[in-house]
């Protein structure tokens, strides 16, 4: 019931978000925000009930990770969205939320034996930090994509007016802020897993696979984007492409869960 309500509210928020992109009416933005808040409430109840029933954070298979990613995206919107001056990002954000929701329903569930690590608090910390971190990366992805679109229009002398996108400066600023916030959480998430391994002497159980390779690749690509920003050695367009590539690579982390 709560799961269906979640999807219903998120689809409604997508409809309002897309309409907002076209018409820019405050009422549409508010409707979009309220729908997302309602969906978030329903989703939180759903996730909490599953968590308390299984005693494992509901993020151990691909479906659950997709579900949790959509939760992370909306959580960031509800807690930090009001800071964003240009609200057109809901035009991009809401379809992404619905995409993850739909993916969670479409992908077949693969039942796996829970590992002992899943029952420790470390796992919940590890997953929570990573999910929120990836959520921030996806926001950075949205703003970097906006930058690329604006930059392309300006370089080719086309009017960048269609969606009244934020200025290049604003896009870069928010893409960088989201990247840094996500990077801190993501790094902490990776470290939490490593610390668990060291504390419990489980280093020998660590196997390199797609999940680990993708996690490291994302960390390196986005780390390079931050380095390029801090030293100004990379121009804003290259940094944007790096942020897009890094955030897109998180898809491999999510897929890696399937084979983990």
């Amino acid at each position: 019931m709560a799961a269906n309500l979640t999807l219903l509210f998120y689809v409604a928020s997508m409809a309002f978000g897309l309409l907002y992109g076209g018409f820019r009416k405050r009422a549409l933005f508010l409707l979009c925000s309220f729908s997302m808040a309602a969906g978030f409430a329903a989703q939180t109840i759903d996730l909490a009930s599953r968590w308390s029933a299984r005693l494992i954070i509901p993020a151990t298979n691909l479906n659950e990770i997709c579900e949790a990613t959509s939760w992370g995206l909306v959580a960031i919107f509800l807690f930090a969205g009001f800071l964003l001056k240009n609200r057109v990002f809901v035009f991009f954000l809401t379809p992404l939320v619905v995409f993850f929701q739909m993916a969670a329903r479409i992908i077949p569930v693969v039942s796996k034996e829970p590992k002992p690590f899943y029952f420790t608090p470390w796992f919940s910390i590890h997953i929570s930090l990573l999910i929120i971190g990836i959520g921030f990366f996806l926001y950075s992805f949205i703003y970097s994509s906006i930058f690329i679109m604006q930059d392309h229009s300006l370089r080719h002398h086309r009017q960048p007016i269609a969606l009244k996108l934020p200025s290049l400066e604003e896009s870069v600023r928010w893409a960088t802020r989201f990247l840094i916030a996500g990077y801190v959480l993501y790094t902490a998430g990776l470290l939490s897993s490593a610390v668990y391994g060291i504390v419990h002497g489980a280093e020998d159980k660590w196997h390199p696979g797609l999940l680990e390779a993708a996690s490291l690749a994302v960390w390196l690509i986005l780390g390079f984007a931050i380095y390029g920003w801090a030293t100004a050695k990379l121009n804003p367009r290259t940094r944007s492409w790096l942020r897009i590539a890094g955030a897109a690579s998180t898809l491999f982390i999510i897929l890696g869960i399937l084979w983990h």
Binding site: Q150, P160, P166, S167, E169, R173
Partner: peptide, 9 residues
Amino acid sequence: FNLARSIFE
């Protein structure tokens, strides 16, 4: 002027 606004915040 409009172009400048598309670039700068």
